[in-house]
Write a protein that binds this DNA or RNA. Structure first.
Lengths: 310, 310
DNA sequence: GCTGTAATGCTCATTCTTAGTATAAATCAT
DNA sequence: ATGATTTATACTAAGAATGAGCATTACAGC
């Protein structure tokens, strides 16, 4: 029942990183090879821990500290997309948040908005028209082709739960669930038997778009109870900038006054005394993140009003 | 920047499982070798995915389906406790919930209450006296030995955040944080430089108690937004049994009427029509879990009132 | 000074939580 | 059979948190 773990014959360890930054209200992710791959670094043997290796590698590349690192998931499946089925590949993926971009305009390591990969996830200006116009009809077709009545009913229910009706009841956390449903329905080019006309959204190689979906989903869930979004902010910022950042991540708009009340009530920020004269109207006060709160208040919820479905 | 992952020279894949069951209101975890180890199975090459391998292995051992499986964490650290520092061990741990115990009274695979390993985590009958009487004084000593004033202040703050004051403001989710603090303070026998008189609580070999702490923490966090605790229940149960289960996991008491209202309001259960005559008082109605809700309501919060600190 | 724009202050209705009290239906001891 | 005890279940009132919106302030440019 408990044999000692034997060294597996042929095992490769692969690390994938979902590195997130934010510029001009766009959530960016670091990609390689024309946006088709997530970065995989040679961290395997350098550092005592994987996380420290990842951190060092990113900081070397971007010249900026990696604010927050979290392990996402480990895949070790034989039938993983992209593996040849013979050698076992253990793929460990991480989510990292950083503040600055590396060499802007560079061709290879390139920051891209994650909504290029998941255009239907951006509801900041209201329900994404993609869903009602393109995705739901295709998924309906798929559901009706589902074999017996019970199977069709189950498919319909899964569509309904993941995507809602296209207008209300949107749950922004279900990024991975939605991608996997589209994958299963053959509506993304990566699928095993892809449909002739997949849904819009740029694919990636191997299972990297799936890993990216995992990262986005994790981050969207995280900001509801932990104020990690400060890791994406400059040292000083206005409350509207902060709100735009959260909205960019969550992919949905927020009520301005209530957002301020919440941030304020939790003591997450303190005024620097200065004001910003960037925009046209009344100048906004500048704030900085009160790092102490993380120590003061244990788990510390950022408690954003994002839990409620739209 | 993106070398292909090379097969690492000597890599062993080890799987650890935190398998949880529940009997007589005690949260149980499956252990080996007199309670000093978590089970590690030889899943590496059998199955297409790790998770299916784990599931098959547990179901073979316990003759009961594994209700819920979730990956906990992957360690691949060179300096991981228990590794010899030469060969890299990748340790992937899982959390699994099951309903029935295997061979009761068996000597080796043995179910043990997790509160044997973390006695300070059980606040079901009020604040654990261990904390105020034993742990906080020891941690205070450790904090005062912390070098300069800033370092001492930081230590004090970490103690305060993790353990509170021993009477109020208990956050049951911080299981791992508390264990790691005790580890760092040398107050557990596993620590690198253990104190002469560690805190009560049974140790485990390698880093298995740390993995167990990770599992408990994850489960305590999970039940707040996902009703996984039903996986620990028999097919039919009374609402008080359900409450006792949640209390056993969370390690804290709940308000009976409000608990019922919440379960009810979310449509998590339906009456079977029968009643239980187990106890002395008025017979309780029996309920069963409405598995449909998981499909009906996407993420589905169990929304237990556990978020508020005591 | 007037107008446009954004920041900020404040209110109010609604819902969710918390912490009860009250009542019902059984068993147990006598 | 009776009352004490135990457990289940219904109901309520106060308070906190949330969602939505109106009102006011502070600046830039004309």
């Amino acid at each position: 029942m408990t044999p000692p773990p034997a060294p597996s014959d042929a095992v490769a360890i692969e690390l994938n990183a979902v590195l997130v930054a934010l510029t001009a209200n766009q959530p960016l992710v670091l990609t390689l090879e024309d946006g088709t791959l997530l970065p995989s670094g040679p961290f395997a043997t350098e550092h005592p821990t994987l996380q420290s290796g990842l951190r060092a590698w990113v900081e070397r590349q971007t010249n900026h500290p990696l604010g927050y690192v979290e392990q996402l998931y480990t895949f070790a499946d034989r039938n993983r997309p992209g593996s040849d089925g013979r050698q076992r590949v253990v793929s460990i993926s991480y989510l990292g948040l950083t503040r600055e971009r590396l060499s802007a305009g560079a061709r290879d390591p390139e920051w891209r908005s994650w909504y290029r990969y998941f255009p239907w996830e951006d509801w900041r200006t209201g329900p994404s028209p993609l869903i009602a116009q393109t995705i739901l009809p295709k998924l309906a077709t798929w559901a009706e082709a589902g074999g017996d009545a019970a199977s069709r009913h189950e498919r319909r229910q899964r569509v309904e739960v993941s995507f809602g009706d296209g207008a209300e009841s949107w749950n922004e956390d279900l990024v991975l669930q939605r991608y996997e449903l589209l994958y299963e329905a053959g509506l993304v080019p990566e699928a095993k038997q892809p449909a002739a006309d997949p849904v819009p959204g740029m694919p990636m190689r191997h299972d990297h778009r799936r890993i990216l979906a995992t990262g986005i989903a994790r981050l969207r869930a995280k900001i509801k109870y932990r104020p990690v979004f400060f890791e994406l902010m400059p040292p000083e910022f206005t409350l509207l900038q902060l709100q735009r950042t959260v909205e960019a991540l969550a992919g949905r708009p927020m009520h301005k006054q209530n957002f301020r009340r919440l941030i304020d009530a939790q003591g997450l920020v303190e005024p620097t005394g200065a004001s910003s004269a960037e925009a046209r109207g009344r100048p906004a006060k500048l704030f900085r993140f009160r790092r102490e709160v993380v120590l003061e208040r244990a788990v510390l919820g950022s408690k954003l009003p994002l839990s409620r479905p739209i």
